[in-house]
Design a binder for these strands. Structure first.
Lengths: 129, 129
DNA sequence: GCGCATACTTACTTTTTTGTTAGTACCTGA
DNA sequence: TCAGGTACTAACAAAAAAGTAAGTATGCGC
């Protein structure tokens, strides 16, 4: 849980106030949020669909990240009063507005990875597996 | 320290491989890196200058982040063989290439903050301090 | 030979994030 | 009445990130 008076928390709060990047990353950063957002860029998804399409997430983590994204207004939770339950998640306008930025970050990250692979080519010019 | 076989580390490694955003954030994310990079966008800086211009960093943290940025090839460490020592840090080409991306993230973060402030206006239309 | 300045290291503690496991609630159809 | 499907929740444990405090090396000027 967060200790609001730890140096750690105070530093973070101050950086969030002063640095747009830190602020943005506090909202879209973290282990699973980028992947969740990318999934939702293509349209609504149910909880179980997300769970299956993100290899490695635990239910706890998925729910936690969804809750945070919802609190920050990036996604909307749509509950259908059925049994068995049905819940869908979709991006809000704000969430969609993060799309180009995410794409920009993704492009930079991928370019970097390709560059690295290229640099590590062996004599035959074949990138390692 | 990192335990290379923890689920945590394995999940991270897998996401870094598959998601450009996670990959990029593993390099430019974290508490202090964005601020360091922004400082260096304007030119070379000495260790002590960085320390003073980033309120709240400890020496340990600053050094650790500088080392990581150096290892990832975003910055270059220039040592002048003088006494007292003089060390400068500057962005490499790769580091500079992160500039527009950082700006994009920053813009999104700042826009979000302004929007929030605007929404929290009181009846007189004056944003709270 | 002692303190000063710079750029770090090291050992250790606290805080935060992430993961594991075992539940809960609800109605349905067999 | 009992398993099945869906979307969670809660208690706890492990790992990672961040912070604290004290120390190191070097040559210079006094």
């Amino acid at each position: 849980m967060r200790k609001i008076n730890s140096t750690n928390a105070l530093n973070e709060a101050q950086l969030i106030r002063n640095c747009g990047v830190v602020h943005a990353l506090s909202i879209i950063g973290g282990r699973w949020k980028p992947t969740i957002l990318f999934n939702l860029l293509y349209g609504k998804m149910r909880y179980n669909e997300l769970l299956k399409s993100i290899p490695g997430v635990s239910e706890r983590m998925l729910i936690a990240q969804l809750r945070e994204l919802e609190q920050h207004g990036l996604i909307r939770r749509i509950v259908y009063p059925e049994v068995p339950p049905k819940v869908e998640y979709e991006l809000t306008t704000l969430g969609k507005s993060a799309g180009p930025m995410l794409q920009g970050i993704s492009d930079w990250g991928n370019k970097l990875r390709n560059k690295k692979t290229a640099t590590t080519k062996n004599a035959a010019g074949i990138a390692p597996a």
